[in-house]
Nucleic acid binder design. Structure first.
Lengths: 305, 305
DNA sequence: GGCATGTTATTCAATCCTGAAGAACGTTCA
DNA sequence: TGAACGTTCTTCAGGATTGAATAACATGCC
């Protein structure tokens, strides 16, 4: 199974948008036979039929329509690369700290830190990359990461343990009636549930949820944790949430806990060496602050159960 | 200025992670000279020096480190494409509505809708793509979009006007003292400010903010609106926010409004034809609900100024 | 110093890919 | 029906890209 080439994917997208290999060729600055061959190669590589050939052009199949979103992401990522490259070409560099975390961590931990740190080191500019996916710190994608899950074993990275995040199954007790707590996993059969898409949430939680929801009715697949939270609060169905997050909303009730409790470790991660002093200072401050916040949050969440 | 080829970028990332063209070649399944040539091509295309060549390997420059994040996004997008392709290869299809909006819109408008719609059409599964970037509905990246900004003129898309979103400059009045309201734009000189990164927020708002902050001190560049909100609430500095969002937080005070007021139109968008009945039903319901919510939100925000 | 080991840079023939031209095909319109 | 049009597919020569082999170079170890 050969892997699809990136060029094939941008060709795919162009054909998708123009409707014919001829028009796509003009857009891409290639010849029509080349584009046609690219599509052939992609279909062969994927083992899927993407277009119905006709003398009127290439008609996208439903498979192609489903893939077009991902293809567009590829194109966007390529444009983003270009864009920041030109941005670099005419920019002066200063002291920048690029920090990555989830949105939730930024709201609860990082955001209060920034203004305080700014007072001690006013010349530093922060950049955020708020995503659920782990970035490669060794490659310099970010300077500091707040990361959920198991500790990696890279020698180049230093991990500081900030605490553990426990997850459980929640629902809105006002909108969904007859909620026995704790409920039996079997009772979830046929119930409305919300699942994660892609890499939202730690792997262990996703696995737990998928097992739990095997007989349930998936109403919504959500690509951000905020989306899941919002849906559960509005009574869309059941979904796993971090206890510390759910504790902030009294209408949410803990229905079910993982057998032995799922406590996902939470880390502050940064490259072991080669760091500027201002970064070391920030790591120091962030570590102290974050552990304090984590203790408070987990204590609060624990007292509710 | 020739554009960098996608293959060059994945080669760049591999060299970045392995530290040499030789090792990268093994990872990529290519030969060492090829990888070396790819890097040359990329550097030439970008007009930037990415590596210091030495007999110990390729040493990334600071420019390369800044670009590695974007390069990784490209690789992730490619993997995502692969992943959903294999997922499609062994999946059954059902009635799916893929909806895209910002996180804020999902929380306020969409999320309450889902549970209600689920009662009338229980067989439908929803999927969310919660992003700030506009997806291509014609290409099928999503079925329905909530979109901020100017109406497009594509014949294939139907736009329903849901209302207008007004933006203004906000700050935390408890943490930042001496806030004259309304303040003079000149008073922003040297003050701490928060900017958007990439395509967060409508273009017109970004342009307004960048002009306003020309003399200010940029403390933070944020890649999500939630991040900006969270930072402003914690007193990091000034930033533009939608009035309807800021109205929910009493500690935020409106410091400055755009000259003639920036009211960004807000649309419900969907492909004009070829839609299933269950989608038409949902669009209908969503339109009614959304206009009602929008009216309420803007009225509330307006009464506060 | 001398040698082994790792790297990048160079060379050149074989290969793959590209694009121009034209064939084949279905659609549309008179 | 027949001709014009737009599309995809086929062919083939020219050109670009690739990789094996090799040179050139720095480093570390004995």
């Amino acid at each position: 199974m050969p892997r699809p080439s990136p060029d094939d994917i941008v060709a795919f997208l162009a054909v998708m948008q123009t409707g014919s290999t001829r028009a796509a060729a003009d857009v891409l600055g290639l010849s029509q036979p080349t584009v046609s061959r690219r599509i052939d190669a992609l279909e062969h590589a994927l083992g899927l039929t993407l277009f119905e050939r006709s003398p009127r052009g290439f008609d996208p199949t439903s498979v192609a329509r489903k893939l077009s979103g991902e293809a567009a992401q590829v194109k966007r990522a390529l444009e983003m690369f270009d864009s920041t490259a030109t941005q670099i070409r005419k920019s002066v560099t200063s002291k920048v700290i690029r920090v990555t975390s989830t949105v939730e961590v930024f709201e609860r931990i990082l955001s209060p830190l920034l203004s305080r740190y700014g007072e001690t080191a006013p010349e530093v500019v922060f950049e955020t990359v708020l995503t659920n996916q782990p970035l490669d710190l060794v490659a310099g994608e970010a300077d500091i990461a707040f990361r959920h899950g198991n500790k990696g074993d890279e020698a180049e990275l230093t991990y500081h343990h900030l605490g553990d995040v426990s997850w459980a199954l929640y629902a809105n007790q006002n909108k969904l009636t007859d909620l026995p707590t704790p409920m039996d996993p079997g009772e979830l059969s046929g119930k409305e549930c919300v699942l994660f898409e892609h890499s939202v949430g730690p792997q262990i939680v996703r696995a737990w949820a998928e097992g739990l929801f095997a007989q349930s009715k998936i109403v919504l697949r959500c690509d951000t944790l905020q989306g899941v939270l919002s849906a559960v609060r509005n009574g869309v169905g059941f979904a796993p949430l971090p206890c510390s997050v759910a504790a902030g909303f009294p209408e949410l009730i803990k229905c079910l806990e993982p057998d032995n409790g799922v406590a996902v470790p939470f880390w502050l991660v940064y490259p072991t060496k080669g760091n500027q002093q201002y970064l070391v200072d920030f790591v120091d401050m962030a570590y102290k602050e974050a552990t304090a916040v984590m203790n408070a949050l987990e204590a609060e969440a624990g007292s509710q159960s």
